[in-house]
Design a protein around this nucleic acid. Structure first.
Lengths: 235, 235
DNA sequence: CAAGATTCTGCCACTGAGTGGCATAAGCCT
DNA sequence: AGGCTTATGCCACTCAGTGGCAGAATCTTG
């Protein structure tokens, strides 16, 4: 029994789970675990936002949630981890969607962009955007959080490439196929980061739909970025 | 007096420094510092390679180099830092070259690729390739090192974009110019990572020229990656 | 070359992240 | 309801990283 993938234990109990309330029909134990997890995330983002990431010790956070430090580390792998949870959820969902997506033909980047758009759409409507915003704002001024986020992104990228090459065949010479798949995924990630940066910087209107719109814009700029020319600036 | 940029203190003493021996004519104090720094890097890569990153404590490393832990942290900002020094040197040089490069017209990505190629060429001929290889092999099996490397890359990317937009004007609509510059730089970084991965994986012949060649190959695949099409694989 | 001003180094004590072990309590399965 | 499984709390521990201070090494100036 692997308690890691909480959602993966649900299928056993038939099709009673509503799409809008994931984990509503889980065993009590799992629900409690998820509740503590969510409480840790919310409280962490609140405290970190107020006193800064380094200004809050784990002891203080655990005391606020009334949980032992040992329990914290069973839910999260590091202090950075809890603060990056919103982004991690997004990429995890991205991989799930990519795995179960109907097999279209077409441009790989369009496929990836569509997959990420749907993942954004699947994020919980209540509060994900706010949590993601708080998390990213915090990461912008906390190097270790930024590093942690990039590392997770990297792992997700690797898995995505693995899934793509397993499920799809790329056109062109077989030799560079894996290389192209990887580069294309990196392009999506780069576009997403740009979208996120702009989204975080805007003063208001932080909705998921708006983030998806920015992702489309950034992806549309990719060909222009590849071909862009420069000329010396006359100062 | 800022002792951070060791090479920046040299210009005061005229043009006596040979291009092949950087820092050969520095004050004794600086030379000693550089020697300790290099000893720490070499010993660290050796010990980490043998016992793994987590298998070597800083106390052990410092004992081996006969230096106090306090001194270690004056030379490096973290345990990961010392092991990622070769990559850091490369990106630092990349930024220097980018800053002082003659203002060509042409494609931005070609400019960036040329700049990175020259930075690779400027790496010390004695041992850089070996150190870089050891460092990357280590990073591949040490998540915290990987994260640290990515974070440094990210900072370098930001600085590169800043330099590019300051020194050059991009064609196309002004609105998305910064966006395109950033995306183009990210593409270079993605290509470089691919080049590095392939270079590290090859069984022998780890020369700087070979790395540069792989960078060219990866960059050449970028348009293909952008346009690549997929079709479902019939299993 | 000597003496004074700088700056680096080593030592010590300390905070805080992260881990392992074990007793206990809570949820789970007949 | 009673045994089984699994999460939790508590304790002690290791190790990365920091601040302070005394002393040594290097640089500078007369």
């Amino acid at each position: 029994m692997t308690p890691e993938k909480a959602t993966a234990t649900a299928p056993e109990r038939g099709a009673e789970q509503a799409p809008e309330a994931p984990g509503a029909a889980l065993p009590l134990r799992e629900r409690k675990k998820l509740r503590t997890r969510q409480a840790l995330i919310d409280t962490a983002l609140e405290l970190f936002g107020e006193h800064g990431f380094d200004g809050v010790t784990l002891d203080r956070l655990c005391e606020a949630v009334e949980v032992s430090k040992r329990t914290f580390f069973r839910a999260f792998s590091s202090k950075e981890d809890v603060a990056m949870a919103p982004t991690q959820d997004l990429w995890t969902t991205f991989l799930e969607v990519l795995e179960s997506r109907p097999s279209d033909d077409g441009r790989l980047l369009a496929l990836l962009e569509g997959t990420l758009t749907e993942a954004i759409d699947r994020m919980p409507a209540d509060g994900w955007a706010e949590r993601a915003l708080a998390s990213r704002r915090l990461a912008a001024r906390t190097p270790s959080m930024d590093a942690h986020g990039l590392a997770f992104c990297e792992r997700a990228t690797r898995e995505a490439v693995s899934t793509v090459t397993r499920r799809f065949a790329l056109d062109g010479p077989e030799a560079g196929a894996a290389l192209r798949a990887r580069l294309a995924t990196d392009m999506l990630v780069a576009a997403f980061h740009q979208a996120m940066d702009g989204w975080v910087a805007q003063p208001s209107g932080h909705t998921r739909a708006d983030l998806a719109r920015r992702l489309r814009t950034a992806c549309a700029e990719l060909p222009g970025a590849l071909a862009a020319s420069v000329e010396p600036r006359r100062a």
